[in-house]
Design a protein around this nucleic acid. Structure first.
Lengths: 247, 247
DNA sequence: CACCGAAGCTAACATGCATCAGTAGACGGT
DNA sequence: ACCGTCTACTGATGCATGTTAGCTTCGGTG
């Protein structure tokens, strides 16, 4: 079967959890490969979609608009399905926006429906992906309840770094993103000015230098400790695992 | 088939979305009815469960512990499955705690597994329930990013009121809960002292009176407006719906 | 090179919230 | 009736964050 060259990222998190045939099957769901620029709204709240989107390269935001303000409620990295729930929820409660230049794949709901019916293991893998999103949401809630602005920013970078590790894309001394300080502010629920102060504090503490979204650090462990980052909730290796038998 | 008398609450949110036979089937998954007292931990982070829990009456918290602090990252009302994800994730990333006296039903994973395989509509309904949880999580993230403490408390009560409406249990002038001000503080990410001041502010503004967790108000609309509460994300009636055909 | 807009940055002041200290009332146990 | 504990409540003070205003740096473009 033909499918676009989507590289290694497709089904990133699921890669080592599924067999080769299931992975290939998932790749075959993607019928088209597209690109988008910074700020482009790929999915609008309330719109009906008949396709789902898988991120191939770059970052995407989940955003909720309220008043004239934008709130970022989630982040996605390559390999993530960004709107599996749109399949069941029909109309989404939020937007999905390109955080920078992105490449993404498109999977028709029709094919997904087929997959759910005929491939129970694939169906479970997709369900697992949505559960993982929910676990990340819960961590963000706790992060917002517990941490001050500098720690929130540090936590977000630590999370991203771990998520890249899990798809084999982490860098030892840096993490490159297209985020502006305004983006960071909208993730942390603080003003852009305060996000700037928070970035300055991380620099001042010697924990990391954030320049145009890119984080440079010589000591991820120190940053993780400062942010009280505990990666369990990402369900990689470690005490929290998902049920391999079930999957 | 015998099943415990679980009353009208079982599968509360799904009640009018599924056929009678599917509902009865879901009820048959519950093999035992139990009770618990305030503060009892029903599910601990990291523990392995071979059953899932459905809340029949009362409230439950999802909590994450960090340091010696407790953070409440989610709420549940009667009819909610509180740990469907425990089925796939094996070990949970958080605790589930009785917020007051509760009655709950127990469904063995074995029976759930059977349901997923043999009843696609039931499987989708359960998936939908977890997606709804995620949508509520996203709203909480936005709420924490956008609102100050008094509005957060107002928003939480508005959400609960709407969720009770959706299972036919709302009261026009009040909402009874067992929440202490400490509980409210742990949901809002503020100190107990500040939660007290926030409660005082709602009273002062004439929007509502909170006494021992019970909210009394003469004007839900004013409270909703103050909290900027938009119920779409709960996927009841209105612009956001889930896909009836799919379900 | 000159210009422009977007992003990053700084200062000064106002508000939200944390913290510490303490009081008062409700409740259960003895 | 007494005691201890938990919850609700209050005031004073300091830190975290918002707001307003203005400035600088950088990358792209004419």
């Amino acid at each position: 079967m033909e499918f676009p060259n989507t590289g290694d990222f497709l089904a990133g998190r699921l890669r080592d959890k599924l067999g080769h045939d299931d992975l290939e099957y998932i790749e075959s769901l993607v019928v088209e490969r597209r690109e988008a620029e910074t700020g482009q709204v790929l999915l609008s709240r309330g719109a009906i979609a008949d396709t789902s989107t898988i991120l191939i390269s770059g970052y995407m935001f989940r955003t909720i608009e309220s008043g004239n303000q934008r709130f970022i409620v989630g982040l996605h990295v390559p390999g993530d399905f960004v709107d599996l729930h749109g399949f069941a929820l029909k109309r989404l409660d939020h937007n999905v926006v390109a955080a920078g230049p992105v490449v993404y794949g498109v999977a028709p709901h029709e094919k997904l429906r087929e997959a759910l019916e005929e491939r129970p293991r694939v169906a479970r893998a997709l369900w697992f992906a949505t559960l993982l999103d929910a676990a990340i949401h819960r961590k963000w809630i706790q992060m917002l309840e517990q941490l001050d602005a500098p720690r929130r920013i540090a936590h977000i970078y630590c999370e991203l770094h771990r998520r890249f590790e899990l798809i084999g894309q982490a860098n030892a001394r840096s993490l490159r993103t297209p985020f502006t300080q305004i983006d960071l502010a909208d993730m942390c629920g603080v003003s852009a000015i305060h996000a700037n102060r928070a970035v300055g504090k991380l620099r001042e503490l010697g924990l990391g230098e954030i320049r145009r979204g890119d984080l440079y650090t010589s000591d991820w462990d120190a940053l993780r400790k400062y942010a009280q980052f505990e990666p369990d909730y990402l369900y990689g290796d470690g005490p929290l695992r998902f049920d391999q038998d079930w999957l």
